[in-house]
Amino acid sequence: MDIDLSMVNWARAQFAFTAMYHWIFVPLTLGLSFLCAFFESIYVRTGNKEWLNLTKFWMTLFGINFAIGVATGIILEFQFGTNWSNYSWIVGDIFGAPLAIEGIFAFFLEATFFAVMFFGWNRVSKKFHLFSTWMVAVGSNLSAIWILVANGWMQNPVGMLFNPETARFEMHNFAEVVFNPVAVSKFVHTSSSGFLFASLFVLTISSWFLIKGRHLQMAKRSIIVASVFGLLASSYVAFTGDEAAYEVAQKQPMKLAAIEGLYKGETRAPIVAAGILNPSKQPGDDQDPFLVEVKIPWALSLLANRSLDSFVPGIDDLVYGNKEQGIESVASKIAKGKKAINDLAEFKQARKENNNQKAELALAQFKKNQDYIGYGYLDKPEEAVPPIAIPYYSFHIMVALGTFFPLLFAAFLFYSLKGTIAEKKWLLPLGLISGLLGLIAQESGWVVAEVGRQPWAIYGLLPVKISTTNLAAVNVQITFFMFFAVFTLLLAAEIKIMLKQISIGPKEEL
């Protein structure tokens, strides 16, 4: 089978680039929509026009961000057709459903109420306007549910059957796809991390106002609401992150081993709290995986299996097998996968020849090994190992920042309660850069999820390298640089418009 790896790599680069770009805007939408709903609720409750001015200020920034988030998201969906048509053919029956529901159900909901929220001031009643703002927040996060159901299915494919007649996976149980435990833990973790990021965004701009000595009352109020939301959200993000890691350990043990740099499985396995990987380490060799490391004893066993004494498999166990622990080697899975591919080809040939007896025999043989069919496309066992350094460092950056954020929110809240927040010259610069740190944590999380999933597009079933469209790489190169230029212009436009609105500050409508 001839595979143009340069096409695969360019298609991956294009998706990674456009997805990470899209993710600059999405988490801000997920969280800022709720913050706007809080601000407007306080305005409706108090009738104080200062809260109306504050609400409109944050809503303007929300609107700028929302527009570019939508534009960059549409590009992603088109790529399933242009660059990943084999993927769309093989799993489109399942993967397409949540994407369509997201567009028809959730996005239309948020888009409709978005119009009322933006253009409905003084045209609809106060309460209906407030209801619209809440619906934008609910709709935005409903959109995220469906996208994360689709991504959760890529990480843990459930609720489908393989149709050997068409060589496609078909939806068998919709509820199983929607309530996939990986999708649920992914949604609550991702959505609440958006709450956290939006709270940091509000801290950043409010800190800037306090440093500049402008709009002090508005900045102090914004800081209190954002700090309460951020403190609760960051605690919840840690809780759901633990649950997401548990699901990874159960469903994607290779990804867990990669993000922890664990080569040799252990009982009472430790977590590497911090460390530098040995760049020359390869699966199966005897080198130490780390140049330096700081470990927390037993913690990985507890995180992965909810038991201190449990065994956590390492990369070597998963690649070369571990009889004692009942882990099958990748080489054995590859052999079964190749057999499944051959049996499927025989089945199709027999169908063409109208030889039903031969077809039934081939189908029975195929069904014995069909779960391994994806492995049949791997060239060697080590190909089942994802890149180690990228998910390892991304995971540890995300966790370190995730530990810092609740402390930052607590400090802002503490000094707000004391009434001295505007005088804290050491804290405000931290608030000023916190939005950027939040963005780094956001992108790191997705890098862990998606790079750690390699070499699979659908985990254990469909390798990335056979998912692309049969195109020459130059086609993807052209669109890659085209998107790069357009997206950079969009980002520059957003930053420029936002900075202009921030420098204008809230309008005084009294």
Binding site: F38, V184, F195, R221, V228, L232, A233, F239
Partner: peptide
Amino acid sequence: MTALMLILYVVVIIASYKGSIFILKKTELL
């Protein structure tokens, strides 16, 4: 666990609003 996570998700949103009101009152910024 799924139900607990979804319940807490809603609790975080409601508690954030209620908690903000409480602290804004306390600091006389409401």
